[in-house]
Amino acid sequence: MGKNKKRIVVTVIGKDDVGIVAKVATALAENNINIIDINQKILGDEIFAMTLLADRMNSSLSLPTITAKLKESIKNMSLNVTVQDSEVFQYMHRV
């Protein structure tokens, strides 16, 4: 698990709009957080769902601060953002 220690999973869900991925990616880049993998889908007709794995090794920000910055980046859009240490998914979905 050591190498996963600084990995985070970002989830963005809500109403689809132009430029969501770009805005989130820019906010992460500005804070030295490196995207490792990204998945994006439109569920049904207009529900946007993105999950993204990133490395925050070079960022000194706490998770609540990262969450706040991501929320700021898409503040006028109807979207929910969550940021979690990736270990929680490791624990819940891998035996």
């Binding site: 999973v9 989830t11 869900i13 490792i36 993998d37 990204i38 998945n39 889908k41 769902a49 999950t51 794995l53 979690q84 990736s86 929680v88 998914f89 490791q90 819940m92 979905h93």
Partner: peptide, 11 residues
């Protein structure tokens, strides 16, 4: 990715 979209969205 290490986790699928479905797994992450489920949690």
């Amino acid at each position: 990715m290490e986790f699928t979209n479905e797994e992450i969205l489920e949690t």
